[in-house]
Nucleic acid binder design. Structure first.
Lengths: 128, 128
DNA sequence: AGCGTTTTGACAATCATTCTCATTCTGCTG
DNA sequence: CAGCAGAATGAGAATGATTGTCAAAACGCT
């Protein structure tokens, strides 16, 4: 079950690329960036690497309004994102309040194994 | 600019189909259902109708983990969803707590025009 | 009924993502 | 160090949802 992870040049290339941006990036963009910087990495590999990273919880994934998956290297632990819809600046936020609320609501309706997604969008100060 | 909306048979067919399920349904499924029940509606039309309904705020849209768009006719007003990941049963939930929290967090970081998405997934009592 | 516009529908075109599979690495092992 | 089995890669095909195209059909109005 434990997928044997074998470190490779292209995997670290993908991780470095991810680390160099602070904003959410799509697999396609990431692939383009890598090509430009001279790294030869196949598109399929970018996808594969990103999904294993995501599965392992090493990166955060969310979907744009158009359904495209975007990835971001984040601090560990459970948290949410406050994203500027103009410049894309992202702030990580955390709050026991929400966690408690979702758990309570779920319990109240007899749901277990609860998980949730929460993203906040707005216009940041500098873009206003 | 104000798109003149002209009522048609197929549009009401789509709306009826949406109204007959209480769970989130994809455009593809909706189209299949319509075909089965004898309604002749083109796939493109289903998509078009759904997006205008969504734009108008008459239906709620969210994305499955795989990025597929799913639609649901909902009560009006701002609310969130508690979805059973096994049977798909959906419960609408509402909570000033979260609304206040997101607004506060956003304000704290200088963000304005705040919007947010929040969905809760879990396993409901009967599926446990 | 007649007309200008909007909608429809069959199908082609996009686009992101996944699959296929032969080839290339990697980490051992002897 | 050479050899091996299994994992990873990459090029391109395949998939699947969604959108665009455009001629034909449906609407609302006169």
């Amino acid at each position: 079950m434990t997928t044997t992870r074998r470190p490779t040049r292209q995997q670290s290339a993908v991780m470095d690329a991810l680390g160099s941006t602070r904003d959410f990036t799509s697999a396609q963009d990431l692939h383009a960036q890598l090509r430009e910087s001279g790294e030869k990495v196949g598109l399929a590999t970018v996808y594969r690497t990103l999904s294993s990273l995501a599965d392992a919880g090493d990166v955060d994934v969310l979907r744009t309004g158009e359904g495209e998956a975007v990835y971001r290297k984040c601090s560990t632990g459970h948290h949410h994102h406050l994203v500027c819809r103009a410049c894309g600046r992202t702030v990580e936020v955390e709050g026991p309040t929400v966690e408690r609320w979702t758990d309570a609501v779920a319990a109240e309706h007899g749901f277990s194994d609860v998980a949730h997604t929460l993203e906040i969008f707005g216009t940041c100060g500098s873009c206003h």
